[in-house]
Amino acid sequence: MIPSSFEYHAPTSVAEALSLLQQYGDEAKILAGGHSLLPAMKLRLAAPGVLIDINKIAELRGVVINGNVNIGSMTTWATLEHHDGLRSACGVLPEAVAMIGDIQVRNRGTIGGSLAHADPAADTPAVVLALDGQIRAQGPGGERTIAAGDFFTDMLSTALEPTELITAVILPTLGKGEGAAYVKFPHPASGYAIVGVAAYVKMDGGSVSTCRVAVTGAGPKAVRLTDVEQAVLGGADAAAATANAGAGLDILGDIHAGEEYRRAMVAVYAKRALQKAMERASG
């Protein structure tokens, strides 16, 4: 359907985009892949007066692997899915990305757009949390780096200021003894996560020295499962550590998966993610 009318700008640099953002303030919305924003506009759930299309800003695209993984915010899912270097450096990201939407969605959707949108059922927030990644943002006051753990504040809300732009996402490269995995229970209609769990473990001499597990889809925002992490560090196996993984979580429900069911699925998928991550770390 047809959205309400809007003004359209297509800056070619971050600086230009930032000044447009400042100029139009609340009226403006950044347009990245448009795969969350445009459907909302077509249903007239969103009606921004101004769109700032950042697709022409070349500096925001691309993946650089050099000690860590630096991903430009406008990098599409398709690029991440098929990036050879990424598969060995940080394979859990392409693993998760391949489960996003369909080919058309992955050709347009961007990692920056997804993180900024903070859809409670988006996949990559769990991965970024489990890898303890960082989000790089630029605003009128310059650049800053936000830890993943501080980024997702609530449903569809982030630590980003309205005048800020996500420029990049920084993830670690994984080496020997490290393993990560993402498993997902897709919504039968939308394909988004009903529950998605990312797990990261680091093994030191046969025991787990670092463990991070994050869940998306289940509640209003992606969160770490710290009780599960503690149990794993305490020596519990995946099944034991996750038996009550859903307890105490803030859970959302819909007709396909009510609160009780979703909570139960958090435990099942946390177990499966951890098992896979542990296998990979030991392998």
Partner: peptide, 11 residues
Amino acid sequence: LVTGTMMDYAV
């Protein structure tokens, strides 16, 4: 209609 779009109605 809770299943008002293809995001909720699973074809």
